[in-house]
Design a protein around this nucleic acid. Structure first.
Lengths: 349, 349
DNA sequence: ATGAAAGCGCTAACAT
DNA sequence: ATGTTAGCGCTTTCAT
């Protein structure tokens, strides 16, 4: 009942020629008479035949497919994906995004697995999104976006996380906050570490006494952040921070949620600033003040870098040490404001 | 210098066994002694071998990969993708998103091409995002999200565009608007038609005389919308609409921009409501009042439907007429307000 | 101009 | 328990 996939063999059979001839027609090779070619084309159209990407790439060296390899498709990687698509749109390249099934507890090493499963066959080049390992060896050109580890042998695109952290602290200080907490990120990630470093640097530059500072774990994880936020916000009003910098928007939103559940108003009783500027940051109420990373642009730059390497593949040796770093910027919204004069005194709830 | 891909053959060679034995180890088949299996596993680990997804799927019937097939990766499809990933996360399934290179001028028929290129080989099932054709035949289960055409043989997920249009009209009426215009969408798309139908229904239910109504083309295209908006907003103040419903957010934003360039204030002199609730709608100033479609949830539902069909594949016949329709809702922001008492009189410019 | 055959990496009958 | 072999759909020598 359901028609099976049409293969090149059936096309050949229907046209009364060999599969080799059909293949030649498909690939515009010489050695086929115009008459035969036309007949074959007719059959192809009639049967609605399309060559199998898989079979074709198993056989061919080049596939014209670029892979975006991710551990998971969440807002960040989806945004990178859009950027890559922006560049590929209108080119000869096709785009495949691949998110393998997460093997339980596997945070590290997925990039090599994904690469091995696809390179040499399905894809000509790859963009790795937030890889933990950047010394991967591959037989195809690879570009990393927002790598988690420090040094890297492959071309890399990231944003200025350190400066972003600095900007966040500056913003809170400028508003007048003096008791500030940070919900940190994942200690194993470079981006997270840099955000914290920049944040500390700004506070240190402003000579804020460390007594006004607290750091609690957030792990880029809403659940962990909730717990930390709860501990933070149930402190006595005189000790409780008047502002929180969360290492990413997800944990910032979790913090706001906890604050609200405790009867604290944002930004009146608590200012919260995040990092990333994901769509949710704009859609929520109040709008989340945050540090924007130009994620989509990072995807664009990565794609550009990759295509360049793809075109130069044979000629040039692998140029090492290519690292593109894009600017971060403050996006002020409604979740931050000057602290109440007597913090906590306005709380009515 | 660059190590070539490790294949099963090299593993076999290094372990001193046949490729068949390696394959058995890989797939946990019976007939391999524990000693041999361990030796092979050791070699696999040493060499960092991973089986080629392509070769494997060419050979196998089942691949455990679900495909999300899109014409282009833009905000809408990326959002659907996230929804699908939400459901697949933690399951056995891997996710591949595929955006083929757009053949020039090809708006229609990409879904069949993509499907033919991947089905039967790379993927076990597919989610089609905004397909123009929904009578596709495939040898794998397929679910369509926001199909452009009307009737459909395959399971479908969309949102209640008609009700969304109704809600938009209701909102404007409730604010007190009586001269209302609509910037319509693309006549060839079902979603667009339904938005208009719902809009008309609400106005008719409210017995708004048709003299207060105008429809101008927008084509889901900012450029077209600009032109229409310009014509609309340069009418004499007594005739000019006090509110505009644009068929999607992109054209709503274009309308606001034109209004502003004509010296009209939004929402004081003109209320504008859009449709979709894309991130931009929240990020712009003033925030755009709009009708939200739960796009990510649509992706989730599609994935759920697909997995269900995948599991039931052999047993059940294809159940026809499965159509999931999710609710749309009004998201009030700052771009709509009650009309000025004497419309146009407050204009000072 | 056309076709037969090998082989890409892998799995599954089918030997042994 | 292990190996041999055929074949998934396709492209590409290499005959004819």
């Amino acid at each position: 009942m359901i028609p099976p996939r049409v293969t090149i063999r059936e096309v050949a059979q229907a046209a009364g020629v060999s599969v080799a001839t059909v293949s030649k027609v498909l690939n515009d090779r010489y050695g086929v008479s115009e008459a035969t070619a036309n007949r074959v084309r007719g059959v192809i159209a009639d049967l609605g035949y399309e060559s199998s990407l898989v079979a074709r790439s198993l056989r061919n060296q080049k596939t014209n497919v670029i892979g975006v390899l991710v551990a998971d498709l969440e807002p960040f990687s989806a945004e990178v994906l859009k950027g890559v698509a922006d560049v590929l749109r209108g080119t000869e390249y096709e785009l495949v995004a691949y998110a393998g099934a997460a093997r339980l507890g596997e945070h590290v090493g997925w990039e090599r697995r994904h690469l091995n499963r696809l390179s040499g066959t399905l894809i000509d080049g790859a963009v790795l999104v937030t890889p933990t390992v950047t010394d991967v060896v591959a037989n195809i050109p690879v570009v990393a976006v927002d790598p988690h580890a420090g040094r890297s042998d492959i071309p890399t695109v990231d944003s200025d996380n350190s400066r972003g952290g600095y900007l966040a602290a500056q913003h809170l200080l400028a508003l007048g906050h003096r008791r500030i907490a940070m919900v940190t990120g994942r200690p194993d990630l470079m981006s997270s570490q840099l955000r914290e470093d920049g944040f500390r640097a700004a506070l240190s530059d402003a000579h804020l006494p460390s007594s006004g500072l607290q750091f609690v774990p957030g792990g880029y994880d809403p659940a962990i952040a909730r717990e930390s936020a709860h501990a933070l916000l149930t402190m006595p009003p005189g000790l409780r921070p008047t502002a929180v910098f969360a290492a990413n928007d997800a944990t910032a939103l979790a913090t706001i949620d906890v604050a609200r559940s405790l009867g604290l108003r944002v930004p009146d009783d608590l200012s919260v600033i995040g990092f990333d500027n994901v769509p949710d940051a704009a859609m929520c109420t109040p709008g989340l003040t945050t540090i924007e990373q130009p994620i989509r642009e990072m995807g664009r730059r990565a794609a550009l870098l990759l295509i360049e390497r793809l075109h130069a593949a044979d000629l040039a040796p692998v140029p090492s040490g290519i690292h593109v770093r894009l600017d971060t910027r403050l996006v002020p919204r409604a979740s931050t404001a000057a602290p109440a004069l007597v913090p906590g005194s306005v709380r009515l709830g």
